[in-house]
């Protein structure tokens, strides 16, 4: 219970987090999400096959691959979004912070609070801009107008939306442009103090300028968060990824640092894909 209330007000962006030597090389990874022998079946079809991967914290990991390769399915399994779908069967293990999230005792809201999800299309909740941002903190027990206002201001500043909306915080969020809404969704996700940000082709529905803003935001926040992005554009992965996972037909073909994977791919399939052989 206490774990939620105490750190909420102070944490964002103000506390200097200890730096890990993530960028120096592949050996000193600090694992954040560990996937072990993950298999997912949808309506009996084998969608993900024996996935094993370790996602390091405080970095951007991009999952790439042709459409239908299972990258979105994988991403959604990280915060158990498949729970409500009877057709999906999941086997294997998924550790977050060393804790298996697919056990019976795991409280799913607790898992989801650790991860913010940014969907393909921004989905603002049917309430005002400020209520959207503080929706999560409110759920998790933060009370008091000033506190909530501060959280909202802080997160909206962080996503660069504050100056655009500060005069109309009480208007419905649906009045914002798509690009603004997506940043609002990011602010909303950050406000629950997650450790991980999941992005499911989060920029694909946006105009180029908004999409650039969001991309830059990912780079800014990776000091504090582990960012996992599913992306369908190779160029985006090249621009921002620290680590890249290449998937094909439900299998993880190759995983490595961006430099490794783009410049010295080990696998023939990877080589073909990144040189634009197929898509």
């Amino acid at each position: 219970m206490e774990l939620i209330t105490a750190p909420l007000i102070t944490v964002p962006l103000t506390i200097e987090q200890p730096k890990f030597k993530v960028m120096n090389g592949s050996h000193s990874l600090n694992p954040h999400i560990v996937v072990e022998n993950l298999n997912i079946f949808i309506k009996g079809n084998h969608i993900l096959k024996d996935i094993n991967m370790t996602i390091p914290d405080k970095s951007i990991t991009c999952i790439i691959g042709p459409s239908g390769c299972g990258k979105t399915t994988l991403l959604r399994s990280f915060n158990r979004l498949h729970d409500d779908n009877v057709d999906v069967k999941i086997k294997g293990k998924l550790f977050v912070d060393g804790e298996d999230i697919y056990t019976k005792d795991t409280e799913v809201t607790h898992i989801r609070k650790k991860m913010g999800l940014l969907a393909q299309r921004p989905c603002s909740l049917p309430m005002s801009i400020i209520d959207n941002v503080v929706y999560g903190p409110r759920l998790h027990g933060v009370r008091g107008r000033r506190k909530l206002y501060e959280i909202a201001r802080h997160q909206l500043v962080a996503v660069g939306l504050w100056d655009e909306v500060k005069d109309r915080l009480k208007t419905p969020a649906s009045t914002l442009s798509i690009g603004q809404q997506q940043r609002l969704c990011l602010a909303r996700g950050l406000a629950v103090e997650p450790e991980i940000i999941l992005g499911d082709e989060a920029t694909s529905a946006l105009d180029p300028i908004s999409s650039k803003t969001i991309e830059e935001l990912f780079v800014t926040i990776k000091d504090k968060y582990t960012v996992v992005l599913v992306t369908h554009t190779l160029r985006q992965a090249k621009r921002i990824a620290d680590y890249v996972a290449f998937m094909y037909m439900g299998e993880l073909v190759e995983f490595g640092t961006a430099d490794q994977l783009f410049n010295h791919p080990k696998n023939q399939l990877t080589k073909e894909y990144i040189s634009g052989g197929f898509s």
Partner: peptide
């Protein structure tokens, strides 16, 4: 906190 939410 979480307990009372789950109870609700």
């Amino acid at each position: 906190m979480l307990k009372s939410r789950l109870l609700k």
